[in-house]
Every structure is written in C-alpha cells, then in structure tokens.
Design a protein around this nucleic acid. Structure first.
Lengths: 197, 197
DNA sequence: CCGGATATACTACAGACGTAGACTAACCGA
DNA sequence: TCGGTTAGTCTACGTCTGTAGTATATCCGG
C-alpha cells in the first residue's frame, strides 16, 4: 500500500483555495495553475481529486449553496412559523464577512449558470427548496395567527428572495457604507408589515 | 481625402454587436475576433474605432448605464414627486425583453467592476445619481402631502435599489414563470405603503 | 528492506486570446 | 487621371489556458 491520504479532506482544501481565489478575483482569477500553486501543489496535481476544472468549480459552487442552506436553516430547527421565517431571513442576509464572500461566489455562480444548463438547474433546485421553506413557515405563521397581512404568500416569498439577491449584489458593488444597518431596518419593517392586517 | 465613413456610427454598431454577444454568452463570449466577425469585419479592424478591448467593453457598459438612465428618467420629465417616483421605479424594473437584456449586461458589469476600480467608480457614480433622484422625488412627494409613511427616506431609497437589483438578477437566473406580474405587485404594494402613515 | 502502488512534479501540446504590424483596396481632391 | 490618405485584411507573436502524458519521489505491507 502506498502513501495514505484523506482524499475528501484534500478536496475540501482545494475547494477552500478555489473559493478564496474566486472571492479575490472572480472566476477569471481561478485558473488551475493558480489554484494548484495556492494549494501548495504543482500544476497537474489536482487531477487526482477533480477530473476537470468544471468538476472543481461545481464543487465550489455546491459549497456556496450548502453554506447558504446552513445559514438559512440555522434557526429553523429551534423555531417554527413566524420565528422560523425571521431566522431564515436574517440568516440569509449578507450581514457579516463570511456571508458577503458567499455572495461573491454566488455572483460568479449566476454568471456561469447562464452559460451552463446543469449549473442553472442546480441553482433553480436550490431556489425552489428555499422558497418552499419560506412558504411553509409563512403558512404556519398564518395558522398560528402571527401573520396577518393581506399580501399573498407568493408575493411575500418573492419579496424576500428579491431583497436578498439585491442585498447580496449591493454588499459587493454598492457604496461602502450603509448596507448592514439598512438591511436590518428592511427586515424589521418587513416583519412589522407581516403582523399587521 | 480617402473613404469617408461615420466613425461614431461605426462605434455604435460595434457596441451593438458586443452588447448582443454579452447578452448571449456573457463577457467570456465577447472576444475581439467574435465581435469583429459578428460586426462584419476581419480580425484587426476594430482597432481604428476602439484602441483596446477594455475601451470597447467600457463603451458597452456605458450604454447599459445610459439605457437604464433613459428608462429611469423617462417619466420624470412629465411628473414630479410621487408620480415621478412611480415612473422611475416602474421604468427601472426588468419588465420587458429590452430591460432584461440590459440587466444581463449589468450583471457582467458587476462582475468585471469587482476587478476594475475605474469601472466600479463608474457604477458607484451611476448609483449615486440614481439614489439622488429617488431622494429628491420622495422629498417632493412628502412636501406635496402624498407620501405619508414613517419609514425614513434613506430606507425607502435603499429598498427600491435592492428590489431592483434583485429583480434584475432573478429575471435572469430565477424560475421562468412569475417575475413580471409579481414585480408589478411588489411595486403596487410598495406604493400603497408610501401613501399610508 | 524491498517491491509495488500511489502522490506529486514536470513537460508538452493544442487552442484561444489581445494586439501589433505589414499589406492591399478603396476613395476623394486636385 | 493620379497621388495620398485611410479602411479593412491578413499574418504573426507572445502569453495564457486546460489537460494529457511521463517521470520521479514517497510510502506501506510483506
């Protein structure tokens, strides 16, 4: 038997490095040579862990989605209905550096998914799951008597998704200031609206 | 004197073609060879009209911004205050194919501006002007007694910008259906909120 | 301690890219 | 008609890309 190494751990490390390069300079800066060097390897060494660049990029995007899922679903375990919805919405917002960088990767994902049907389907699946959860918690919130607004559920879900996408974009390309405080204000105002008829 | 041609018109045509290629396949698909071919020229012919690819791309992005300005400022000439605000918000939304493609170019712009300070400054300038106009019309709307909401102006402006950015993104990478009807509903709900205390 | 499997390094290749430069064709004014 | 200016073509160069292939180093089980 030869040298024993943890392949999954290596893959995680390589995805780490790819993530960092995308955050710093976009997909354009994440070349195989650059990734290999930054990961401490020589040019062809990544081949054993990812058969192609597409596979590596897909793994990196999958991490972005699962990281978002973690943030989103974080408070869902301990709450239900309105409170679960609140936890999801705050969790999804780019309120700290980690989530902002995830938004940076997501942006590269958007760009690439417009030219890659498999990636696009992957994102639509993610969106569908996210929206499904939002719907479910809004329904429960109404059943609990907490959510009273006359605005239909579809529209509420869509409003959350749009605000979140917009916040991700603006935390990257918008003016340096603002953002965080205003993001909380938007969410507070939104939830005030929810609980009033 | 040699053959006389309209340089500005040629530049517009080249930007047209570049625009179309970006819409179809992103910045990655807009290579100098591809642009030249699609514009009906041979490889090096674009040199006379744009000194470099960066200059051509910048011109294309400038068209996206000015197109958005046109849509945004369209209703501003005939209205003031609340109605001007309404015209701006509807005009900025990706409600038809033309504005959706403008959003596609804008998305490429975002991506590139994260690696190009000059482009980023250009976009911040655009954002600042847009937000300034929004502020102005909200202020006038309040002075007219039309806008009564207690939500502060800063937050209203930011909410509009976030919803617009999010709508641009989702009209590209979101599910095929929804979008247009929901966009109008969002705006209607938003303006209902504006006129209530 | 040694044979074989594996990890990694290195080289090479074919293609695409932006752009520079030499060349040809077209046109207007005289 | 003719000369000079410019439009556009074509070729070439250097660089970078992903990836395939080959060689070397490293380690474990016997």
């Amino acid at each position: 038997m030869p040298k024993v190494i943890d392949h999954d751990q290596r893959r995680e490390h390589i995805v780490d490095v790819t993530w960092g390069l995308i955050v710093r300079g976009g997909l354009e800066a994440a070349t195989m040579r650059e990734i290999a060097t930054a990961a401490g390897f020589a040019n062809g060494a990544l081949k054993r862990y990812f058969p192609s660049k597409d596979a590596l990029v897909e793994a990196t995007f999958n991490r972005a989605l699962s990281m978002m899922n973690d943030h989103i679903a974080g408070g869902t375990k301990v709450h239900t209905g309105l409170e679960a919805l609140r936890a999801m919405c705050y969790g999804a917002m780019p309120l700290d550096a980690k989530r902002i960088t995830a938004g940076r990767v997501l942006m590269a994902f958007w760009e690439m998914s417009l030219a890659n049907k498999a990636l696009h389907d992957r994102y639509l699946e993610h969106l569908k799951a996210w929206r499904g959860l939002l719907h479910e918690h809004i329904r429960q919130g109404r059943a609990d008597g907490d959510i009273l607004t006359a605005v239909p559920d579809d529209q509420l879900v869509d409003e959350i998704v749009l605000m979140n996408a917009g916040a991700n974009v603006m935390s990257l390309v918008g003016p340096r200031h603002s953002t965080k405080k205003l993001q909380r204000q938007h969410l507070d105002t939104f939830f005030e609206r929810l609980v009033r008829p």
